[in-house]
Design a protein around this nucleic acid. Sequence first.
DNA 1: CAAAGCATGTAAGCAGTTACATGATTGT
DNA 2: ACAATCATGTAACTGCTTACATGCTTTG
Lengths: 188, 188
Amino acid sequence: MSIQHAILGFLSWKPHTGYELKKVFADSLSFHWSGNNNQIYGTLIKLHQEGLVTNEVVYQDKYPARKVYTVTPKGLETLRAWLGSEPELPELRNAFHIQLAWADLLGDPELYALLGRYESALETRLLMARETTRRGRPSPNRSRREAFLWRSIEENHLGHLESELAWARGVREGLGNLRYDPAREGSK
Amino acid sequence: MSIQHAILGFLSWKPHTGYELKKVFADSLSFHWSGNNNQIYGTLIKLHQEGLVTNEVVYQDKYPARKVYTVTPKGLETLRAWLGSEPELPELRNAFHIQLAWADLLGDPELYALLGRYESALETRLLMARETTRRGRPSPNRSRREAFLWRSIEENHLGHLESELAWARGVREGLGNLRYDPAREGSK
DNA sequence: CAAAGCATGTAAGCAGTTACATGATTGT
DNA sequence: ACAATCATGTAACTGCTTACATGCTTTG
């Protein structure tokens, strides 16, 4: 999986310039790429060489020329083939889990503080994500089915953040219970 | 976040060879790296150059010599500093979500099939993960607190898989309801 | 006798990131 | 005056992956 298919997807919705794609990625929840120049423009050039997209240069007098990219039939075919291909499982890479795995090296106050910072980072992100969802950016809505899929993906995203937050709070509670549990060995 | 801290963590538990680390990563749930040679051996060499680990070569007559790596005080300090540093948020990159985002290009049967394959891949992974958890590989257990943290991380992992599976099933159900909903526009 | 395990390492490449480079225009 | 927006592109780097390379030993 690479950003290539995501770009083809957006172009299958409607033509975009690199600059527009950049913004779409930058403020999307579910399309998780940073939307950096190198990747967007580089991928568009590569897709163009492979004949999966074409571009039309639109000159403007007040602003730089725009390259409007459109997907070709071959590009659509490539996208459709990918859509039908074997789905990948989510990666579940969470750097915080590694931090927590070795956090017994920390004292209780530091461990609590670490969990606390993770929780508040999650809270902030959740608020932003909810706000983004509430505002609802433009998204393809070509059928009830498509709208449902996009809504489902957004809900999945929010759900993951919520369950991660609930889990973190649970860990902190569990640590508290551990402290007052009579069956414990020497305190750290 | 890189594998460097994960390796320092394991060495803070007890000395390991590269070969051992490789296996630890390969069959761990929460340490999500593939455990490939280049990364393990390369990182160990780099850590050694930086003085964060030392190694002792143990010759064997039947097998190749082993390099047993031990963390240095400087390495422990580095690890502890990282543990106290700002936690990263999970990345939530799910290639399947991108596939689903553009899946309106597929017909109903293909879309169902795609969801079905995602579900069964998740089911398989869940079974393997539960089995791995049940068997319980050796893990640091230096305090009740550490055992609790490791258990929590494992539960988080299983929880994510379970909720993803539940979500996927929900999406499939929702699609079914959509089909029989009178308020729909032209069927795809 | 072939496959898997023990054990270390290197080469080549992909995907993604930040930062650099240019230059007019519009908003504060 | 300064920053942000419009718009495209390049350079340098990090992290991670697969595959290659070697060679002895144990298991099936």
